[in-house]
């Protein structure tokens, strides 16, 4: 069994949504992640704030924004168990974030 990282990017700005919409959306996440947890696939996962500081040029330059913005902005991650990159990708397919214009990049954790 390998571990895979779902890098979740983009998505609509949820801060403009009503509390009811927000709640319904988070319920979808609960259903999806609940399914992964039931199958023993879920390891961890957290959403991220948009605010960021980015360090470049050997850490000497600090910019008060994320490196990538808009559709490229990383909005969160999940760590899951799967047997192959294909299986991991199919697990990612159920993410409710797609309905909100997210993209997911699936990467295997490298054993060094």
């Amino acid at each position: 069994m390998n571990q895979y990282l779902f890098i979740i990017r983009g998505g609509e700005d949820m801060s403009t949504k009503s509390p009811e919409e927000m709640q319904a959306h988070m319920k979808d996440w609960e259903v999806w992640m609940g399914g992964l947890a039931q199958e023993g696939k879920l390891v961890a996962g957290e959403p991220l704030h948009n605010e960021a500081k980015t360090l470049t040029e050997r850490g000497t330059k600090v910019t008060d924004r994320p490196l990538a913005e808009g559709k490229e902005l990383v909005g969160g991650y999940l760590l899951v168990n799967a047997n192959s990159l294909d299986e991991a990708a199919s697990l990612a397919g159920g993410c409710p974030g797609f309905e909100r214009d997210c993209s997911i990049e699936v990467r295997e954790i490298a054993k060094m």
């Binding site: 988070m26 319920k27 609960e30 947890a37």
Partner: peptide, 12 residues
């Protein structure tokens, strides 16, 4: 387990 992720903590 869903209590451990901010994605699902409140709903759970």
């Amino acid at each position: 387990q869903l209590l451990t992720s901010e994605y699902t903590l409140t709903a759970t």
